[in-house]
Amino acid sequence: MTSTATEPQLKAAAGATFLVFGINGLVFASWAARIPAVTEILHITSGQMGTLLLCLAVGSLIALPTAGFVVGRIGTANTVRSAGLFAAAAGVGVALSLMAASVPGTAASLFLFGIGVGLWDVSQNIEGADVEHRLGRTIMPQFHAAYSGGAFVGALIGAGLSTLGVGLPEHLLVVAAIVAVLTTVAPRYFLPHQADAGSAAGETGRGKAVSAWRDGRTLLIGVVVLGATLTEGAGNDWIAKAAVDGLGAEQSTGALMFAAFVLAMTAMRFFGGRAIDAYGRVAVLRASMAAAAAGLCLFVFAGTIWLAAAGAVLWGVGAALAFPIGMSAAADDPRKAAARVSVVSTLGYIAFLAGPPLLGFLGDATGIRTALLAIGIPILVALLLAGAAKPLPAK
Rank of each mutant, 00 (worst) to 15 (best):
A100Q: 14
R134K: 15
A101R: 14
A176I: 01
A87S: 15
D121I: 00
G105L: 10
V174E: 00
A107T: 07
I62H: 01
N125V: 09
S97H: 01
G72M: 08
Y147F: 15
I62M: 13
A186P: 06
V174F: 11
T106M: 12
G154T: 04
S109K: 05
L172E: 00
T76E: 09
M140V: 12
T106R: 09
R137W: 14
P187A: 08
F69C: 02
M140A: 10
G128M: 10
R134G: 06
L61T: 05
G149Q: 04
P141T: 04
N125M: 09
L172R: 09
V92W: 14
G118K: 00
G167Q: 14
D130K: 14
L98H: 03
R188I: 11
T106C: 13
F152G: 02
T183K: 05
V185I: 14
V70T: 11
F86G: 06
A88W: 05
G68M: 00
L182P: 02
G154F: 06
G93M: 07
S109M: 02
L112D: 02
A67C: 11
M99Y: 12
G59H: 02
V92Y: 14
I178A: 14
P187C: 08
G91W: 05
I157S: 06
A63S: 05
G75S: 13
G116D: 05
R188M: 10
E132V: 09
P187H: 00
L172Y: 04
G136D: 09
A77T: 03
G93S: 11
G91R: 02
F111S: 01
A63N: 01
A63G: 04
T79Q: 03
L156M: 15
M140L: 15
S162C: 10
G165D: 05
I62N: 03
V70R: 07
I74V: 15
R137E: 12
